[in-house]
Amino acid sequence: MRYFLTLFILAVVGAVTVLGFRGDKSRKPPRMAEIFPDLNIQPKLRPQTVTKFGGFADGASSRPFPSGTIAQSIGFNNNTAWEETPLNTGRDAKGFVEVNPVPVTADLLKRGQERFNIYCQPCHGAQGDAAGGIVKKLGASTVANLQDQRIVRMNDGELFNTISNGKSTMMGYAGQVPVSDRWAIVAYVRALQLSRLGFKDDVPAPVLEKLK
């Protein structure tokens, strides 16, 4: 019995040493013995995955857009992205449109605030005054201050165009931010600018009372 117990304890200790504990860091992919792996890994295309089944020659499961084309489904109201309307380009026959073609509502501003904080705040800062993370951290000093007079005077259409296509060292956000959200962001940037340009008289009396 003594020998058996010693062996038993050795075996348990050995197993735990080799197998480790739950949650241990491991570099090896988690594969259990699979009897019928074809249900787990089906011959179908998955996004962003290298595939041996029916994929393209380079192994990708999808193609990038051919240049100069646009996916119909990503437009405003689903299907108009290919139309050269002021809504989609920020321009009309005279140049950049002056005012936001989307009616500015509280909901739009709220959406704009959320999207601004996701996509613009890292560089331009929550107030738009170029105090975002990367400026603070590494002094990427070329980031524009959105409270600047020059930008305050810009047409809404030009702001829209900057978000879509970028401007010199800032890259475009057309891939991440759909058209409707870009106009929401434009509206919110205007609100941010107004917040620094307002006069005392613009503030409703009860609020002013609180601020004192």
Binding site: G23, R27, K28, P30, R31, M32
Partner: peptide, 17 residues
Amino acid sequence: GVWYYLTPKYTRVGYTP
């Protein structure tokens, strides 16, 4: 051993490629 090692709590958790 089966309970501890043969569930995703052991096989998956901790995977860090």
